[in-house]
Simulated assay, not measured.
Amino acid sequence: MPTTTTRGRAPKLHAPVPVPVYQGTNDVRIPRANVNTCPLVFRGLFHAVVDAVHPLGASLFTDTNNPPSSATPVSVLRANDNIHFLDNDGFATRQDVSIETLLSALDTAPPPAQQRLYHRAPVPAQLATALLSSPLIASISPPATTTTTTTTTTMMMHHHLTSLARIWASSAGSITPLHYDKCHGLLVQLHGRKRFLIIPRDDARNCYLHNGITGPTHASRVRGADRAFMKAKACRDNPDVEDDDDDDDEETSDLLASFPLLAATRPWMVTLEPGDCVYTPPGFLHEVTSISASVSVTIPYDMTEAELDDRPAFMKF
């Protein structure tokens, strides 16, 4: 568990430590030691999928029998504050834009005044097929039985990917606020860069979850956690460098004044490049920042009956 803290003028936050990197070579799967206990990053595991989807085109965001045109509509979220994207009526609105508009938003970093876009949709069949070539995806396939053929298992997993997996496209600077999922999750980075701040579920009580009235119960009321913990990381990594950025110090101090228990959390942090994948256990809170325009795929899979019986109280609501 991360234990490093900041020193000197830095705010009193535990500086995040790197997410462990998968070290295996054969039989790629999530090690038992990481399941439900620790996130894990797989570096470069999906480079073949990245090559298969580049250059980005309209077909990546649609799954129709007819070739899409640049005017084909797709659904996007627009955050009320133009930064924090949470699929909830109190925080964002949904509207249709053309694929051309979406692809344009993924081309360059928008200026602050430009409205950021966030697109979420089922994974197209051709992308699901490419993902199935990975041994990691095969390792989470439904268990085979004496009557299950390899073809049937592949078809079942293909259906899982096209029905439950999601493709996400976001403008640079978009942030998904701290939240947790009630399932195991893999995120595959296809385009651009994303940074994950991950907090263990034992620290959920320190993360100020919504009560269902102010917002969804799986999401935190905290905003700006990534920036604050990045500041803590910078202070840890450069302890002898004098820090004159009073604005950052004040911002973090204000955050801790509003959410003091956040100082007790002990997070991990990782930046994903195209081809990378991160595993996040159920109930682990994570804030996700699109450092650049980004496209990724999330692949959820269920907890076992034993895991459901053992889940903490906050995950039962």
Rank of each mutant, 00 (worst) to 15 (best):
D240T: 12
T304Q: 01
H54Y: 07
L131S: 08
R223K: 09
D248K: 14
A264N: 15
V97N: 12
Y208W: 06
T147W: 10
V241M: 14
T151W: 00
T214P: 05
A58N: 07
F85L: 13
L86C: 13
L102N: 12
P20I: 06
T217Y: 06
P281D: 01
D245S: 07
Q95I: 14
T5H: 09
G173R: 06
P111L: 10
D244Q: 05
T145A: 05
T150P: 03
Y118R: 00
T265W: 13
V188M: 06
D249S: 08
S290T: 13
G215K: 03
P142T: 08
L161N: 03
T280G: 00
E250A: 01
T6P: 00
A15V: 09
I291L: 05
A105N: 01
P282V: 02
D81R: 03
C277R: 03
T93W: 10
R7K: 10
F91V: 04
W268F: 15
S253A: 14
L186P: 03
P274Q: 08
P142A: 15
T146D: 12
S75I: 00
L308H: 03
K231N: 11
L187S: 13
K182Q: 10
T265V: 14
D202M: 11
V49T: 14
P110M: 07
A79G: 07
E287T: 04
D247A: 11
A48I: 05
Q115S: 13
G24Y: 06
M156F: 09
N34W: 06
A306Q: 10
V297D: 15
V19A: 03
V123E: 05
N238D: 13
A128G: 07
A71Y: 10
S98V: 07
E251M: 11
I291D: 10
A172W: 01
A293H: 06
D246S: 07
P68S: 04
M315W: 08
T62P: 06
D87P: 04
T289K: 12
M269D: 04
Y301G: 02
R236S: 10
L161K: 04
L161I: 01
A71R: 08
K194W: 01
E251R: 13
A204P: 02
A33N: 10
T280A: 01
P281T: 02
P2A: 13
A169V: 05
K316T: 15
S253N: 15
M1E: 00
S174K: 03
G57R: 11
T151V: 05
R311Y: 01
S70M: 05
V50D: 07
V74L: 00
